[in-house]
Design a protein around this nucleic acid. Structure first.
Length: 876
RNA sequence: GGAUGCUUAGCUCAGCUGGGAGAGCGCCACCCUUACAAGGUGGAUGUCGUGGGUUCGAGCCCCUCAGCAUCCACCA
């Protein structure tokens, strides 16, 4: 079949994915093969996939397709994440537009709305996976809130509780006053913020003197329980044990001493608010101080704040400072730059807040994960440096706050006795359920995500065949921004519950940035929608751009030019394929290449194909797609299109049927190999070409093809003739370009050489020279005496001479030749120096020495010839 | 305060275990050569951030400094 003249991605990409899914090619599993598993990082069911998802999933798709073609039984598990806070926030926002709050609906009905939302978005996500061509096994699709995964969550929670690794406690946690829920440490983003430092006078009980105390959060003063100074601070020794008035409410606060206080910082005297600061809380515990909570869950001030009750914390701050100022107790206000914590989701300033929450005790789990990284069973991070990021974080990790005051999520499997308030924790509700009420909270979304690699494969049923065959998974692919949230938690949960690592490799990529290097984000409005790009350039172009334009682990800058050049490359493949098919004809059937009848260029491309396969195997196995991509690019563009296809035209026009057939088979064979090798990068267009090449609309690379193999025989080709021919053609082209001679103007060419073998071989292949150098007359001589009236060139073992009546500018030529001579001399000088250096000859590898010796010999030969050429020119 | 990454052609970036620097885009010249003008042929452009060290040999390894970026931890 002949391809259309123009590559049209819309046509090519329109019908493929449906077919793949309907024929279930991604769902077929051959148990005779070695399994290879990936679980997709489940996207949130909150919105559309962005270009970062496209990058992440394309990498995985490439790996799956590559491994499949290599003969593995690949499984890629799809799924999505309920994304507790994120989804609930969106659903609540939508309800708010209708003037409804979640409390109006009640828990049950609110969850119904969430489920409906989930179904709508799931379809949307599916359509985007389709657009990207992902080889997912939909029969294994999972959702973090589905029954099986919920069972896994319960099982893990209860087990950890029974082992004492989950506990409930009053602690200072990060509170999001907008979503009114606790957050874990990693859900807080610290940003440098300009705020104010307020200095207040705290008068002694007898009003004889005062201390100046500084704070950035005056509103928390209603919760102050003492003032702390360092016992070694001579300025304050006399005050220790005395009492001062709190300027906010006139309460008397004791002055205590603790070495925690930094003498150098602020005034050296610190107010202590155990209910609103984690460090103060520790002090509070140490000295058995009261914890006075001054805020409501929404960030407004509570009843302990007197007239400020009901005011927002920031409104209160302002008003309180005014009051203190009018009381004459304000010393000064200074600008202060500090790191302020914001909620990752609501972007509200997080309030350190004392509350009762559920926690995972991290120390034993972290130790297990860290110890494991010291063993042979460690998770292999790619690039390696990310292992350090992981272990650094893990070794300092604090207990994980896992309860969230939300409705959308896994409800905590804990019940309280209605009368005794005693806690019951179990996978099933207590039998006398009427005497109990369940904990209102749900679990952190990441608690269920942490189980994803094994919960999707059947855990907690470890006899599940899926789990038995496909776990541990082979590789996890994700961005570095999610190492703490997800990667680390999967590792320690997996080690604890399956006694195995969740994935053998962890491939980390960067983030996508806009053309100016800024992070892409919806709020800034610089985000690029993958759908737009796919509409304009096609999925294949996007995929090729995404996978071949950044070094491992580094960020990728979005560049439309590069997407466009990817498309041009695909167009090149399209047209080369079109050429091949046009020349094979309708009735062509591939048969083994008759190597004895193959031309030097057939043999040359087959050898280069071997080399390409070899290099590609190495880079693909290392997941180094940039190198793999450029290896393919160079082979396809330069070796196959620019050289081989051009040269093949000679044999295709040959009257020697055997030769012609050998070339046709080579063209077919190399193109077929190319399609398979580059299929993981650009699955759609390769499928289209493959179907045409194989004359079957049913042909499918994923299920029918296998990765090309290196054929040793092809490596035996070791002739220099093809190189010389290429060099001759190039030399003549340069000459014509420099002399302003039209490229297609026919010339006469004399080839001079005393190497009879080479000459004879060049004579056999003279058609290539005639055609591509546009030399309608080519003579071979052993020695040419008269090189006047023409251009001569030196190519080590041979010289070229082009007679020309319109004489060249002799002076210019002499300058050129002198430059050449200069170059050869310096090269010879370099080579001789190197080779006469005993340190080099004794230490350098043999191959390197041989290479240098060969270079030197060639340079000497060329120098000799150039000198001769100079003599000839001087005679003119 | 701790850590990591980056600095290579006008721009955006590759450069795999050290063996005389590459791509895409852009730029210049010529060309509709029967797959491709989304093309072909040829060309110009780099003291590989600074300073030192190791080595026969450094863009690559070690140290110093500078600039940029990111992460972690933080003092009221």
């Amino acid at each position: 079949m002949i391809l259309e003249k123009n590559y049209d991605h819309k046509i090519v990409e329109s019908d493929k994915y449906d077919k793949w899914v309907k024929s279930k090619v991604f769902e077929q599993h051959d148990v005779a093969k070695t399994p290879f598993t990936i679980v997709i990082p489940p996207p949130n069911v909150t919105g559309k996939l962005h270009i970062g998802h496209a990058w992440d999933t394309t990498i995985q798709d490439m790996i799956i397709r590559y491994k499949h073609l290599k003969g593995f039984d690949t499984l890629w598990v799809p799924g999505s994440d309920h994304a507790g806070i994120a989804t609930q926030a969106k659903v609540e926002a939508k309800l708010r537009e209708e003037g409804i709050s979640r409390y109006d609906l009640g828990r049950e009905k609110f969850l119904d709305v969430c489920w409906k939302w989930k179904h709508d978005y799931h379809d949307f996500i599916f359509s985007q996976w389709a657009m990207l061509g992902l080889a997912l096994d939909y029969s294994k699709e999972r959702f973090t809130l589905d029954e099986g995964l919920s069972n896994a969550v319960k099982k893990v929670f209860v087990d950890l509780y029974n082992k004492g690794l989950i506990y409930q406690g009053q602690r200072i946690i990060n509170w999001d006053p907008v979503f009114k829920t606790a957050l874990s440490n990693v859900e807080v983003i610290y940003e440098e913020t300009e705020s104010k430092m307020y200095y207040f006078k705290y008068y002694l009980e007898d009003k004889s003197d005062y201390l100046t105390v500084a704070t950035t959060r005056p509103e928390t003063m209603f919760g102050d329980v003492c003032v702390v100074v360092n016992p070694n601070d001579s300025r304050f020794t006399k005050y220790i044990g005395k009492k001062v008035y709190n300027p906010a409410n006139n309460d008397l606060l004791p002055i205590i001493a603790d070495e925690y206080v930094d003498i150098e910082f602020g005034t050296g005297a610190m107010k202590c608010t155990p209910a609103h600061d984690p460090n103060d809380y520790i002090l509070g515990k140490k000295y058995n101080l009261d914890c006075i909570n001054v805020m409501n869950p929404d960030g407004s001030m509570n009843e302990v704040c007197g007239k400020y009750q009901g005011q927002d914390r920031f409104e209160c701050r302002e008003n309180l400072v005014k009051q203190i100022e009018s009381d004459g107790l304000l010393v000064k206000i200074e600008k202060h730059i500090n790191q302020v914590g914001y909620s990752e989701r609501s972007h509200a300033i997080v309030e350190p807040y004392l509350s009762k929450q559920w926690f995972v005790k991290m120390a034993p789990l972290a130790k297990q994960a860290l110890d494991n990284q010291q063993s042979d069973n460690k998770v292999n991070f790619i690039p390696e440096r990310f292992e350090k990021i992981f272990t650094n974080w893990m070794s300092g990790v604090e207990d994980w706050c896992i309860s969230r005051q939300l409705w959308w999520g896994h409800r905590i499997p804990a019940w309280y006795n209605n009368t005794t308030n005693e806690v019951y924790v179990g996978e099933q509700p207590p039998k006398d359920i009427e005497n109990y009420h369940q904990d209102e909270d749900v679990l952190d979304t990441w608690f269920s995500s942490a189980l994803w690699p094994f919960s999707t494969l059947g855990f907690p049923d470890t006899t599940n065949p899926l789990y038995q065959r496909y776990f541990p998974t082979d590789i996890l692919v994700t961005g570095y921004d999610i190492i703490f949230f997800w990667v680390s938690r999967m590792i320690f949960q997996s080690l604890e519950f399956t006694k195995q690592i969740p994935f053998k490799n962890c491939l980390i990529h960067g983030l996508i940035r806009d053309p100016f290097g800024k992070k892409m984000s919806k709020s800034v409005g610089n985000a690029v929608d993958p759908k737009d790009i796919i509409d304009r350039y096609g999925c294949d172009s996007l995929r090729f751009f995404l996978t071949t334009n950044s070094a491992p682990g580094l960020d990728l800058r979005y560049s439309e030019e590069k997407i466009s050049s990817s498309r041009n490359f695909i167009n090149k493949i399209w047209n080369a394929s079109r050429f091949v098919m046009m020349n094979l004809g309708e009735d062509y059937k591939f048969s083994e290449i008759d190597y004895d009848n193959a031309s030097i260029f057939d043999k040359d491309i087959l050898k280069k194909l071997n080399k390409t396969i070899e290099q590609l195997n190495i880079s693909m196995d290392k997941y180094d797609f940039v190198i793999a991509g450029s290896t393919l690019y160079n082979f396809i563009y330069d070796d196959f299109c620019s050289i081989y296809i051009e040269m093949a035209k000679i044999c295709l026009n040959s009257s020697d049927e055997e030769k012609k057939k050998a070339t046709m088979n080579t063209l077919y064979y190399v193109l077929d190999s190319i399609l398979v090798m580059i299929h993981p990068f650009i699955p759609f267009v390769t499928e289209e070409i493959y179907q045409n090449l194989h004359n079957s609309k049913e042909a499918c690379i994923f299920s029918d093809a296998s990765w090309p193999k290196i054929i040793d025989k092809y490596n035996d080709f070791n002739e220099e003739t093809s190189d010389y021919i290429n060099e001759i053609i190039k030399t003549i082209r340069i000459m014509k370009s420099e002399q302003n001679i039209a490229p297609n103007k026919q010339i006469k060419l004399v080839i001079e050489s005393s190497d009879n073998k080479l000459v004879s071989s060049l004579k056999d292949n003279v058609q290539y020279i005639s055609r591509f150098a546009f030399a309608d007359e080519v003579d071979f001589v052993n020695k040419l005496d008269n090189k006047e009236n023409g251009f001569s060139f030196v190519l080590s073992k041979i010289s070229l001479f082009v007679p020309s009546k319109d004489l060249i500018n002799v002076e210019e030529e002499i300058i050129k030749v002198n430059k050449e001579i200069e170059k050869f001399r310096s090269e010879i000088d370099r080579g001789e120096k190197m080779l006469s250096n005993p340190s080099f000859t004794s230490k350098a590898p043999k191959e390197k020495i041989a290479l240098e010796e060969e270079k030197l010999a060639n340079n000497k030969l060329s120098l000799e010839k150039s000198l001769q050429k100079l003599e000839d020119l001087k005679k003119m």
